[in-house]
């Protein structure tokens, strides 16, 4: 089943066209990796999937992005509700300067959940699902900054999944992590895809190969190729894709 359908998406920053007529269907409960050289529009595309670009001055967006058949750019969409459904994890772990527990509970509270027991249970479940529980269960009330980078990033995932999103967007989530933390993170993504649709922007081509079922290759704002990951990495159809993944340009 298609979770997100992007139709003819165009985006300008001022006069500069950043995304050029992008169309693709992202299947439900799968991982889509977006790869491409720096400045090709990967992150901008990702941010357009939960309207994070709306904040940027001078941005103009045309085209449609359907989430479960509903265009997220239609005027009647509640952006707050949209971002609840489409969570995001950033390049650098960005926990709140609060306790580990509060980092997760905070999001629940601002979404109107008051029942203490329910919050407690959700905190534990989210930490378990983010493979972090065993490492933090004895120090839930320590400051989140006391965790390692990899743990902080998993805390951000826990925070994102606590409010039960349907889609998780990840913008180079492991670029600040060491190889072991990266591996743990990738294993987590493998598990999360059973319940969530994940779109991940990555500079690391091998990571895209390992974690995703679908890969999209963007080049200067254009979607060059979208296909199943095994196809992209064994027999890409476009020469530019082949050149990029074999490191002929980067």
């Amino acid at each position: 089943m298609v979770k997100i359908e992007v139709k003819d998406l165009k985006l300008w920053f001022g006069n500069k066209k950043i995304l050029k007529e992008i169309s693709m269907s992202i299947p439900e409960k799968s991982v889509l990796a977006i790869i491409g050289p720096s400045g090709c529009g990967k992150s901008t595309f990702l941010r357009s999937l939960n309207r994070m670009n709306d904040f940027i001055k001078g941005v103009k967006i045309e085209g449609k992005v359907y989430l479960d058949g509903k265009n997220i750019y239609s005027p009647d969409v509640n952006v707050f509700e949209l971002r609840k459904k489409v969570g995001m994890v950033f390049q650098k772990p960005n926990p709140f300067p609060k306790t580990i527990y509060e980092n997760i509970a905070y999001g629940l509270k601002i979404h109107g959940i008051k029942d203490k027991k329910m919050i407690q249970e959700t905190v534990e479940k989210s930490l378990r699902d983010a493979n972090l529980w065993n490492e933090v269960k004895d120090k839930l009330f320590d400051n989140a900054f006391s965790l390692s980078g990899g743990q902080q990033q998993r805390l951000c995932i826990a925070r994102a999944i606590a409010i039960k999103p349907e889609v998780i967007l990840m913008d180079e989530p492991t670029s600040a992590l060491d190889p072991i933390a990266t591996k743990r993170f990738e294993n987590l993504v493998e598990e999360l895809k059973k319940d969530y649709t994940i779109v991940i922007v990555t500079h690391n081509i091998q990571q895209a190969a390992r974690v995703s079922q679908y890969t999209a290759f963007l080049y200067v704002g254009e979607l060059i190729e979208f296909n199943r990951t095994e196809k992209i990495f064994t027999a890409p159809e476009d020469k530019r894709t082949e050149d990029y993944i074999t490191g002929k340009f980067s």
Binding site: R210, E230, F233, T234
Partner: peptide, 9 residues
């Protein structure tokens, strides 16, 4: 096997 090499190095 080729897929395994391509995807998992």
């Amino acid at each position: 096997a080729i897929e395994t090499i391509a995807l998992f190095q």
